[in-house]
């Protein structure tokens, strides 16, 4: 009940936005085809629901697989970078550089290289999402206290044991911060990749709806994307509660 209660303000804001939108598009002087009212978006989306869900599933699959790749890559790389300062110095410029690649240009290239299948989508999602994960992990490792490191050293723990028992758990709060940032990029990245060429997916759905001037269906797909991102975002909290049950507890105490 308390959980639901906390959602009330957010729901009110959304309701308010919908009302303003509805009023503006019915009473304002924009054409109802340019900016269809939310009620029309909803009914058009509902009418086309089977096609929407057919296109939603591939996008979800791309996001999930892209994230799996991104997570494994970020973890493996974070260990390498944490382990050796030389590797960190050598790779940091390249990693930062990878984040300046304009995805709008990169997406068609990746499609040319890897075809219309799943691979280019997974790669793009991973490219866009790994960086916040990596930064979150590295900053988290660095937050391990000196005394904790010394304690492990006096107990004779090697590098790996110290990482597993102390550095990794120390990094979790900051990792989840990175994860939440990543998650909000993931769906957009998948849409971009589909825009550049795909058989099915919300991106390609939006493109063909746009080409036939169905702004209502474009917006219906956009709303679906937003819902998907929200769901992923909520999932990060569930995961955090699962992996770090101590965290919420330790913060509930007044300090």
């Amino acid at each position: 009940m308390r959980q639901l209660g906390r959602l009330v303000p957010a729901l009110l804001v959304i309701a308010l936005l919908l009302i303003v939108w509805q009023l503006y598009s019915t009473l304002g002087d924009v054409g109802s085809d340019l900016l269809p009212a939310p009620s029309r978006v909803a009914s058009a989306g509902w009418a086309d629901r089977s096609s929407l869900s057919d296109n939603l599933l591939p996008t979800v699959r791309e996001v999930v697989l892209g994230f799996a790749l991104s997570l494994s890559f970020a973890f493996a790389l974070s260990i390498l970078l944490d382990r050796s300062q030389a590797v960190r110095r050598a790779l940091t410029p390249v990693l930062i550089g990878s984040q300046t690649l304009p995805i709008i240009v990169l997406a068609p290239l990746v499609v040319i290289w890897f075809g219309f299948g799943l691979t280019p989508k997974i790669l793009l999602v991973a490219l866009v999402t790994f960086f916040p994960l990596l930064v979150g992990l590295l900053e988290g490792y660095a937050s391990t206290t000196r005394a904790a490191m010394t304690l492990m050293e006096t107990m004779g723990a090697g590098w790996w044991k110290t990482w597993r028992l102390v550095r990794l758990p120390s990094a979790l709060p900051s990792f989840f911060t990175g994860l939440r940032i990543s998650v909000t990029y993931a769906v957009v990245a998948a849409i971009f990749a589909e825009y550049a060429g795909a058989e099915l997916g919300l991106g390609i759905y939006m493109q063909s709806a746009k080409n036939s001037f169905r702004t209502d269906l474009v917006l219906a797909a956009v709303i679906l994307c937003a819902l998907l991102t929200l769901a992923l975002y909520a999932l990060t909290f569930a995961l955090q509660r699962l992996l770090m049950p101590w965290y919420a507890q330790s913060r509930e105490r007044p300090s």
């Binding site: 206290t145 005394a147 904790a148 304690l151 004779g156 102390v166 758990p169 770090m244 101590w246």
Partner: peptide, 18 residues
Amino acid sequence: AGHQPFAWMPQDDVLFPW
């Protein structure tokens, strides 16, 4: 080095919240 026979207790307790 690496084989010290002492158990050290740090100045601040360093208990791990996890």
